[in-house]
Design a protein around this nucleic acid. Structure first.
Lengths: 327, 327
DNA sequence: TTGAAAGCGCTAACAT
DNA sequence: ATGTTAGCGCTTTCAA
């Protein structure tokens, strides 16, 4: 077995209680004693057993994160930031992948509950009521989902989509197609909301297509429909769909941005690597991830009266797939 | 506080020991009693406290995984499989990101050690001796790294690279450039090993360039050098570099695959989405991830006499960037 | 400022 | 087949 607090106590010629105090409440022990204890601890390579500590303090020093898909760079971006911020705060992180299954999401949170102080639930597909239920079993912070009473780290996709339309309109586009992602997803609803506001403001024509699968194939399928609608610009739900659109357009001999402008959403790595490079909206995944952890940590020692929802700004990245329409 | 084993015991009119047995060793308790206990447990929504259990059994029911970069789809692919397989076996998983820092790798494993039954260490940058040291603190399984005495899940990159050369030679290429990744990385060494074997076998000319940064920019830089060397094919260390090569070649008006063939390695999503689609080698990340967990679980109840190293096969994916050379 | 002792939730002897 | 009891490693009263 590993080295325990008792080994340290023996070596430092003090009681286990003193060792414990030296480690967790330094002010309660004489500096001299403290140094002796610390020395003994490092000499033995002592690492407190967090499970044992948690048993008594009721805090585990762990947080959990549940994501819909670990193959999606959007969520791993969040994960990376969550893990980094958590480590900084001396928390370890559990991950779980729900595989886009709402039922699994709830199950996973339940399973984690006993081992963590709280969990970050990313873009859940759960109904509001189920999210509430889950928020009852452990401290919850939502990412990209809004629910009164539950803290949330949000990204302003509506604003990003608004910027996309502003951009296209400024270029002179007057008839624009939007390729919807999954109707029920919060992301699509938000993006659509920003779109609608902007479209109404500018008084331009919107051709609302879909929903399509938020994948390359969805883009392939959508491209032909958008073309048939004779719009000068195509706004895709996300980058992957946009890449599908680009591919199909190329196959049909339609030039981008010559004949039609195309935009994506997310700013995945390869949006900048394809040619022409894709005009898109960058999501502040890292910032949102950090914020989520901060919210969780704050929530843990708050009286739970107000649940903040913090919005991180998106950013329009103008690249090569948008120009003024031909006239 | 949550519901404990005592609450269940009281409700089922038995002792805590019986509850414990009913849950963990059903055969030791009368079926009738067992049902009563189980009923009480579900009614109360009882979930055993794993930390408390671990304190006495010495097993945590957790495993850890340490990766160099959570933004790299290669590692998140592994992670996804690891988490899926672990969950299946009723293990929860801790993740940590070392940010490509060998020192951090070692630290992270140490930090996790107390909370896990073992850890999967992915493609560590650590020296052999340091990996050994780390293997002493907890049960370790290596991914894409070979070290006698330590179980490992490997991917046959050497074989994959060999297949690349076979393919190019079959097309008629006789003078090939290899763009090295980081010299010290196990991956580059393995890929290079396969390359050398194949090159020697076929007796073709190899122009060995680099090392380059395994990024898009590295590819941009490498492209000009490869062109100057007048080879008919360019074999990149990985897909991202290959995409950089493609971009630079296009800028210089060099046609792919017309003027020169290009191959990547890894089969990232966008390798199939760019145009022409990239000929590359698919890494069996999911399989290796599952294998790593299996090895770890086996290792935990083995006598540690033999440490298996299991190799998963890579696969050459022929797409649009390779054709016979111009003559 | 320090030590002795109780106990967190659970399992594993040891009894019965 | 079931109950009693002693810890697992740690923190936290309570006393000294």
């Amino acid at each position: 077995m590993a080295v325990t607090i008792r080994d340290v106590a023996r070596r430092a010629h003090v009681s286990v209680a003193t060792v414990s105090r030296a480690l967790t409440s330094p002010e309660l022990v004489r500096p001299e004693t403290r140094t002796r204890v610390l020395a003994a601890a490092t000499e033995l390579g002592y690492q407190p057993n967090r499970a044992a500590r948690g048993l008594i303090t009721g805090k585990t020093g762990n947080i959990g994160i549940v994501v819909p898909d670990l193959d999606n760079p959007f969520f791993t971006g969040v994960l990376k930031a969550v893990q980094a911020r958590a480590m900084q705060a001396d928390y370890a992180v559990f991950v779980a992948d729900s595989d886009e299954d709402p039922v699994a999401e709830a199950k996973l949170v339940h399973a984690m509950a006993k081992q963590v102080d709280g969990v970050v639930l990313c873009a859940p597909g759960l109904e509001d009521s189920q999210v509430r239920e889950v928020a009852g079993v452990t401290s919850l912070v939502l990412l990209n989902r809004r629910l009164p009473g539950v803290p949330a780290a949000l990204m302003d996709s509506a604003g990003g989509m608004h910027a996309v339309i502003d951009h296209l309109v400024a270029l002179g586009h007057r008839r624009i197609a939007y390729l919807n992602g999954p109707r029920t997803s919060w992301s699509n609803q938000e993006r659509r909301r920003g779109l609608m506001t902007a479209v109404a403001k500018h008084g331009v024509d919107l051709v609302d297509l879909g929903p399509f699968a938020p994948r390359f194939e969805g883009g392939l399928q959508a491209a032909d429909l958008a073309l048939a609608a004779a719009t000068t610009a195509i706004v895709a739900y996300n980058d992957i769909m946009a890449l599908g659109v680009l591919a199909r357009l190329r196959d049909r001999g339609v030039s981008v941005p010559g004949d039609v402008s195309v935009t994506g959403f997310d700013d995945l790595t390869y949006a900048s690597l394809c040619s022409p490079a894709l005009t898109t909206v960058a999501m502040p995944v890292a910032q949102a991830g950090r914020t989520a952890v901060n919210l969780l940590l704050d929530w843990l020692d708050s009286d739970h009266t107000d649940a903040p929802q913090i919005m991180a700004e998106t950013q329009l990245i103008v690249r090569g797939t948008t120009t003024p329409p031909k006239r």
